[in-house]
């Protein structure tokens, strides 16, 4: 029983973290049609900005968690205006290549600024403890990750379903020309959505910083797992990102506990299965 609960909690904290990150990827794709290869690098940037904020500026972790995502979002908005915007009209693989260039730049920029070694951030004092559930000892911070993921997910869902800006974004995602015709400022909306995707990635990064070692390649695995999540859930589908993230979390949490030697292969097996049965993902729109 206690191992089961531990595996479940483990699945949930990995799953909710991945959900926050992958939802940014899927929203940007759904609206802009751009698959952001640098999304994992933005996650990494979130973690390193948090490191700087906590260690060198000596901000409390809570403040970093609030400020860092906005800093990364502003950076992303600038990049969207300067470069990405020029190639929306082209073949979608061009945007993939451009964001891949961003990935190369960011990976090495992090190496230059923060050095190639691993770094660690301590969780805030209020969350350093552990708690016991059904006989399993568990770090309190994991619970915080699960709760934050759920809160962000709920907020994003409300934003898209209940607010005017959310409606405009959905309109632009459905039909860009129609949205332009009814007077929506689509270019500005695109900048906003790209920045928001970056915000989610960076929030994930800052949130993950106290429980994962920071290294210059930390975004690489995340971007691949995010890709797998959106393939499983359906590209562009927000509920799909949640479902995919939970599935991937469970594969890690449970698969990793009982078949650790296959840990790295499980996600691919899951993805291959989904593709065989539903090529556009579990909750994706099929053509």
């Amino acid at each position: 029983m206690s191992t089961f609960v531990a595996a479940l909690l483990n699945s949930l904290d990995i799953g909710m973290l991945l959900f926050v990150i992958a939802s940014g990827l899927t929203i940007v794709f759904g609206v802009l049609g751009v698959l952001n290869f640098a999304h994992g690098a933005l996650y990494m940037l979130g973690a390193y900005f948090a490191l700087t904020a906590v260690r060198w500026i000596e901000l409390p972790f809570w403040a970093a968690l609030v400020i860092v995502p906005f800093a990364v979002a502003i950076l992303a908005a600038a990049v969207e205006r300067l470069a990405l915007r020029r190639i929306y009209a082209r073949h979608p693989t061009q945007a993939l290549l451009l964001t891949f260039a961003f990935l190369l730049i960011l990976n090495d920029a992090v190496r230059m600024i923060w050095g190639p070694g691993y770094q660690i951030i301590d969780p805030p004092r209020a969350l350093t403890g552990t708690f016991v559930l059904a006989g399993a000892v568990y770090p309190l911070y994991s619970l915080f990750v699960i709760a934050s993921g759920a809160a962000v997910g709920l907020a994003v869902w409300l934003l898209f379903s209940r607010t005017l800006i959310g409606k405009r974004i959905r309109a632009a995602a459905l039909d860009r020309d129609m949205a332009l015709a009814v007077g929506i400022d689509v270019p500005r909306l695109y900048t906003l959505v790209f920045a928001f995707g970056a915000w989610l990635a960076a929030f994930g990064g800052a949130l993950a910083a106290p429980m994962r070692a920071l290294g210059p390649a930390m975004g690489d695995r995340i971007i691949i797992e995010s890709f797998i999540i959106v393939v499983i859930g359906g590209l562009g589908s927000f509920p799909g990102a949640l479902l995919g993230a939970l599935i991937l979390g469970a594969l890690h949490g449970f698969g990793g506990r009982w078949f650790p030697q296959f840990d790295i292969v499980w996600p691919y097996v899951g993805m291959a299965l989904v593709l065989l049965l539903r090529p556009h993902g579990l909750l994706g729109r099929s053509a």
Binding site: L97, A101, L103, L104, N107, D108, A109, M112
Partner: peptide, 12 residues
Amino acid sequence: QEWMFFLGVILA
């Protein structure tokens, strides 16, 4: 050592 940075700039 960070030649990928320049590669990224060139690619972009």
